[in-house]
Design a protein around this nucleic acid. Structure first.
Lengths: 157, 157
DNA sequence: CGGAAACCGTTAGTCACCCGAACGACCTTG
DNA sequence: CAAGGTCGTTCGGGTGACTAACGGTTTCCG
């Protein structure tokens, strides 16, 4: 007999809020990034396109601050996006340090695609919860996030 | 005037459950791994020690399955733990493919330390919620996790 | 029996996301 | 003007998760 050590998750972990949170996030993350991979994008890309769409053309540094992506990673991600013509990088005449990033029509279309996917995924993710519970969850999470973002220096510093 | 693009997080993201989840998890993760770093450990170490404590001496493969850590990562983590005498690796005479991993008294002490930290951290993490809300949150998360672990093949496959 | 199939441990990568250090070019302020 | 901050960029590190490959071992089955 081959040692019937079936797998069973350690009890104590399953009670730990931080564990539940990170594990659930892991699933969420997988759903999202798998869904994005189909469309040939990653989380960073979505965040950047979304931010761009919301605030209009702006500099990379500002994009990074807004979307919570480290400036050095913004550079690489914008490279990707520019290579695929989702975004245009042009020097700011008013401040020659800056590149102004602009969302192209193609980029906007890609964003639409990504957003559709994201919406589907929310449904997958929250499948076992009814609308009221989904609301509860988001409210609770929002409060946690708020709290911790106030105490921590977010991306400024 | 230097383009008053203060940072402000993109609206649409803050409504997205998957975003809330992963962001909150990020904070949780930071709290945990910072807390562990003080004691010179990482998440993998805690999970392995905990699992070992719960199921007793067993093989690395089994440890990996139970704690949800990839086998190749178990190897490295067990190396660390063994180097610090928290754990002992001995060949299984009954099955020479296996290493049987045993928790040492020192390891058990380390586990105690880690568990204390973990408890403190839960409090930090959930600070803004009252007991009832904490319960709600863990219940909701548990349901999500359950659901997604049933549909996904967890670590077996 | 003997080989195929499954399993164990290990090494050596990849990937996404998060982060810090450094640096040159460029404003901006005192 | 000089000092100091900002912007873009490159390089590199860390964690958690995961894949590929391989040798050694055990189990299953024809």
């Amino acid at each position: 007999m081959r040692t019937p050590t079936g797998d069973s998750p350690p009890e104590r972990l399953t009670r730990l809020p931080s564990w539940l949170l990170t594990q659930t996030a892991r699933h969420a993350h997988r759903l999202v990034s798998d869904g994005f991979a189909d469309i040939g994008s990653r989380g960073y890309h979505y965040r950047l396109l979304l931010t761009l769409d919301e605030v209009g053309p702006t500099s990379q540094a500002d994009l990074g601050r807004r979307s919570g992506i480290h400036l050095s990673d913004v550079v690489a991600a914008i490279n990707d996006l520019a290579a695929r013509q989702f975004v245009e990088r042009s020097p700011d005449p008013a401040d020659r340090r800056r590149n102004v990033i602009t969302l192209t029509p193609t980029g906007r279309r890609q964003l639409r695609r990504l957003e559709q996917r994201v919406d589907q995924i929310q449904d997958d993710l929250l499948a076992p919860l009814d609308p009221a519970e989904r609301d509860q969850l988001t409210r609770l999470l929002s409060r946690l996030l708020d709290h911790h973002e106030r105490s921590d220096p977010p991306t400024d510093a």
